[in-house]
Design a protein around this nucleic acid. Structure first.
Lengths: 198, 198
DNA sequence: TTATGATGTGAATATGGATTCACATGGAGG
DNA sequence: CCTCCATGTGAATCCATATTCACATCATAA
């Protein structure tokens, strides 16, 4: 029998594994059997730790949220100023996608109008939170005079949020041939030119 | 009994209805029963015109492709120059989203790594085709001197493609409160500043 | 007008996946 | 060292959908 673990540790392990599967296959392709297998359990065992499928997805979303918000905060902390923070953030998103983290896929897949209303609502909340954080960076950039002040921070934040999304799609389609990191650098130039003061 | 139709007309009708459902609910929520109902048929009747679910989705994708490509071509045709064409295209995307056309959702939902490989491949092909068309507009803009020539057309096209996507998400989350058209105008300003020659 | 094949129907059937349940077992506290 | 409960297991069961099938009916063309 698989080693027993206390439920808290198991929950985390399972939620993490679920997020990984979600990134690989989207919510449609996500199923309990594969999830169980990926943590070395039998399907029914999942129900010792979660109410059901939706509960698992909810937990995975929480992990996702912490990861993404953490990315923003780390970028802000490590960069000397908001503009650099944004650039750093973009780079890291790119790297994440490259390594299979598939952030955009998760957002898209989970927020699609299909699933449980609660799940969708949570995804949207997460997205709004993300945008709000980027927006805060933009505002700070404006206060410091790095970013033009006639720009609507929300618009800029949404533009930023959209920068890697299509690239992730292409990356998926073209595989290794498409260099996301290089692409990120190029769109960053564009973004910078759009928002930077002079 | 529901009025009989020859299969070609029925196929088109069904494919169109399928696309609409897809836009509303994503591929996960899409099912034959609802599709049949939406065209006033009984589920089994669908199989008179399609091999099965995947075949329906494939047909819906074709409709989608024609619609989207048509949008690009119409914009190019109606606008005097490539830059205006891009602006027009953006505006129309916004309007489409506003009226429930949910382009980004369809792309995301259909291309998610979940489904049938063939379906995914087709979605990606469609996306690449779209990007290629936008890219062509960018190149033309460069030739005419409207767009800076040191810009990578692919990067610009992908940036463009990503401009409305996040907005669609927000729109979904915040409902009517979020004005996509206004947002489109603002990101357009940003995009223009990023790519336009001086 | 009628015969015929294409379309539509409702009732099975098939299938995949989630969920439940009775039972097994290991590990932490006594 | 024992006990007992949380955790793990495998075999049902349930359920939602896709799909099939035998039968009904309409459209049309000779």
């Amino acid at each position: 029998m698989t080693q027993k673990m206390n439920t808290e540790a198991r929950r985390e392990q399972i939620a993490g594994a679920a997020l990984k599967l979600l990134a690989e296959r989207g919510s449609e392709g996500f199923n309990i059997a594969d999830l169980a297998q990926s943590v070395g359990l039998v399907p029914s065992a999942i129900y010792r730790h979660f109410e059901g499928r939706e509960d698992v997805l909810d937990a995975a979303l929480s992990v996702f949220r912490d990861k993404v918000y953490g990315l923003v905060e780390a970028a802000r902390r490590e960069a000397g100023n908001p503009l650099i923070a944004l650039e750093l953030l973009l780079t890291r998103h790119a790297r994440l996608i490259e390594s299979g983290g598939a952030v955009p896929h998760i957002m898209a897949s989970m927020s699609a109008p299909e699933g449980h209303a609660a799940r969708r609502a949570k995804t949207e909340r997460i997205f709004r939170g993300y945008v709000a954080r980027v927006e805060a960076l933009v505002r700070e950039g404006q206060e410091r005079g790095q970013i033009r002040s006639d720009i609507d921070p929300t618009a800029a934040a949404l533009l930023f949020a959209g920068m890697i999304q299509p690239a992730a799609l292409l990356r998926h389609a073209e595989g290794e041939r498409f260099d996301i990191t290089a692409h990120a650098a190029q769109v960053w130039d564009l973004f910078r030119r759009a928002v930077a003061r002079d």
